[in-house]
Design a protein around this nucleic acid. Structure first.
Lengths: 208, 208
DNA sequence: GACCAAATAGAACGACCGTACGTATAGTTT
DNA sequence: AAACTATACGTACGGTCGTTCTATTTGGTC
């Protein structure tokens, strides 16, 4: 089939565009991402690049989808190689911190940056970012629920509260590391998360 | 002295500009804040407004300073009417949550929005935002230290860790309330903060 | 009422923005 | 070889950006 070849060639360029666009967006925001600059950086014509998406909003939508793919590959999938329940929840937290710390996106967590940028701008972009965030929190919550059903968490744990606090501690590390150049925030985050996990775990068996 | 009147007239316009600029910046970011739009909104000429600041960066600097004033008035000063130590720390946390919840800035906490926007863009604006954040954390830390010296906190408390976690929980509420339209996040934040305070307090005396 | 300085307005600038349209190139199908 | 399609390019348009000039208005001082 030549179809494969066709698709591959177009998609290769598209992916190259998106890879760079994600990096720019994590640094300068989804709005700061401009088609002209993106084209110049990649050594491509503005119109040729534009044709791939049709509008700036479509480009932003595609960038968000691409960032979700990266996040899945870097954080979610590795955690799914751990056992369900508490071990997996631990790996989700640790994977997220490493994803921020390793600067998978040069501007830190893509969804932290984009979420803060669009959290007060109603529209499609905000909706997509909110969905991504809800999916992440939902995944954490479901994993915690599994842990509860496996008897790894104390029965009176408030799952929403539990996940809220874990997420808060992780996000705060990203924020402090970027704005304050405080790499030790990751250690504080790990300390807080571990303490929170210990407080709700039934035993030390599944914790580091 | 006419100087007073002169200054007053100019400063009134300047303050009117800054008031609106803070609102726009909290919604659309410090970069999204444009001089043309600001002038149009206020029914003022672009050049006349521009003359007040001399450059966009100076405008951004002035907006940050104005936002710090608002923050001091809305969060810090009320807390200083409480007794030093733990009571004041409680009021700082609660005051911050109310400041976010009441939408003193329509886009939620100004420094959350601006900090996330500039945390990966080196320069004067980032430095100022980092300074504001450090001052806030420093104030919380000093207040916690006072509480420790007053015997209101257990002696082995890690002050940096303690403040990191309180701040993380508060910030997470702002984020969830804005992006996810989840007003209940404030309750979760209060629950988490109170639990953290209780864990390190020597007695229930100074806690709600 | 003349004078001065501050405050505001108006018009224009070059640069960049997103977008549109027509064209050239390359690869595939017939 | 011809027809077709996907991909990329060049150019141009209208609009907004920050900024810079040159008036003009305003309010207070002498």
């Amino acid at each position: 089939m030549t179809r494969d070849r066709r698709v591959v060639r177009g998609d290769q360029t598209r992916q190259r565009i998106l890879d760079h666009a994600m990096a720019i967006a994590s640094l300068d925001g989804l709005e700061g991402l401009s088609i002209g600059r993106l084209a110049t950086d990649l050594g491509v014509s503005k119109s040729g690049l534009f044709a791939h998406f049709g509008s700036k909003e479509e480009l932003q939508v595609a960038v968000i989808a691409a960032a979700r793919d990266v996040f899945s590959r870097e954080v979610v999938e590795p955690a799914f190689r751990a056992a369900p329940g508490l071990p997996r929840l631990v790996r989700l937290c640790e994977g997220w911190l490493e994803y921020s710390e390793r600067r998978v996106f040069p501007g830190g967590c893509f969804f932290y940056a984009a979420g803060a940028e669009f959290d007060a701008r109603p529209g499609r972009i905000r909706d997509l970012l909110a969905e991504a965030r809800r999916d992440w929190l939902g995944l954490c919550r479901q994993t915690a629920r599994d842990a509860l059903q496996l008897g790894q968490l104390v029965e009176d744990v408030d799952l929403d509260q539990f996940v809220f606090e874990l997420d808060a501690l992780a996000t705060a590390a990203n924020s402090a590391a970027l704005l304050l150049d405080d790499a030790s925030a990751y250690q504080r985050s790990r300390t807080g998360i571990l303490s929170r996990l210990r407080a709700s775990a039934t035993g030390p068996g599944d914790l580091p």
